[in-house]
Design a protein around this nucleic acid. Sequence first.
DNA 1: TGTTCCTCTAGTGTATGCAAGATCGTTTCT
DNA 2: AGAAACGATCTTGCATACACTAGAGGAACA
Lengths: 226, 226
Amino acid sequence: MPSDDANPNPLLSERIRIALADEIMAGALAPGQALDEQQIGDRFGASRTPVREALRQLAAAGLVEIRPRRGAIVGGFTAERIVEMFEMTAEIEALCVRLAAWRMTPVERSRLARLHDESEAMVANNDIDGYDRLNWEFHRTIYEGTHNSFLAEQAIALRDRMAAFRRTQLREEGRPVRSRGEHEKVLEAIMRGDGEEAARCMRAHMFNASIALERFTAKREPAPNN
Amino acid sequence: MPSDDANPNPLLSERIRIALADEIMAGALAPGQALDEQQIGDRFGASRTPVREALRQLAAAGLVEIRPRRGAIVGGFTAERIVEMFEMTAEIEALCVRLAAWRMTPVERSRLARLHDESEAMVANNDIDGYDRLNWEFHRTIYEGTHNSFLAEQAIALRDRMAAFRRTQLREEGRPVRSRGEHEKVLEAIMRGDGEEAARCMRAHMFNASIALERFTAKREPAPNN
DNA sequence: TGTTCCTCTAGTGTATGCAAGATCGTTTCT
DNA sequence: AGAAACGATCTTGCATACACTAGAGGAACA
């Protein structure tokens, strides 16, 4: 069947999964709304089979809820839940950095410092995407610094789920500068091997990011209807 | 919902998922081994469709790895990885209890104390399964005490993944008594609202459970051959 | 009029069939 | 003989067909 688009990923279920995830994140699908397999399949020109696979994946990621024999509904992505996700993310990040401050090798510490240095130019040029990329690398290096690959995987998965909010948050005026300043404090604590202090700084960092997101979205979208 | 055997769930895919999960946990399937859909389907008297669903679920839970168009293989469940999982579980439990100590309502605190009281009889009668059930309730009450439902869900999911190891751990001679003693210390710290101390006690509790598991499995299975 | 039971339908769970891609052995060329 | 190309075969990805259950809605009854 000749496709009408040039998607490099040949897996239909994957494409559906991504598309549905985007729509849910963007709020195009209201929480609690029923997701009919046939209907979604028609919308993507696919049969129910790949749709089902996509829905299972999304259920595992927490974006939809599946009740056996009763179909799937959009998961509750309310403002309250987003706050909860931010809190958990902050605590996981704090946990990672606490362990990392104790366990990172000199090579890893050096890499972290280098990443932080490189980010200075991005902030100066107001290159949001570039800083976002380095930001990601910074946190990822910390995850790996825990020397607990299971924990690192979980942290990465969690961060992926929050990716949409994270980038938004950086668009607030002056946020990248302050974000980098917070990174600096985290970095210093890591260099001193002070895990508890690093954790405190990281918690503050995530909290500030959360606040920035709230302010930014409140400005752009004054009344989120229910 | 924890997978108790008394569940007459008529969903074939679910039964297959549970069975495969058990086999992987028990080490009956070696890490890296290929999982042929047809073959598994034959083994359960099912077609490939429910097998596929089960494999997707397991992939989401991290038990198997799926390479597109190249099939599924058993995920790396090495001894090192189990240690990592225990560490993360311990930290998550510590995080939950820290928040719970600050946020639990009097009603919730009372319920927790009651659960702890009830467990005394189980320990006295050496009722492992009964204590395991109350143990689960105890921890679950703490999760909910965080008043962060997202965090609670993640903690429950993690605990489910470790369920097999957790019950094993309690079979060590005298472990239930000591486990209950550790709970008592956690409970006291919660009652005082001392989150940091509660977290420390919980970390120690989980660490001891991990050690108990290691000793128990080392005794029963001196040489895990492959 | 309110309740209970039944039927009917919409929609999920499973089986089967078909096509595309991956693996591996064979063949052919240098 | 070694390496690259080719093709047979096996497995996955997707489509379609059938089975079975949960709810909705109406009919029968108190």
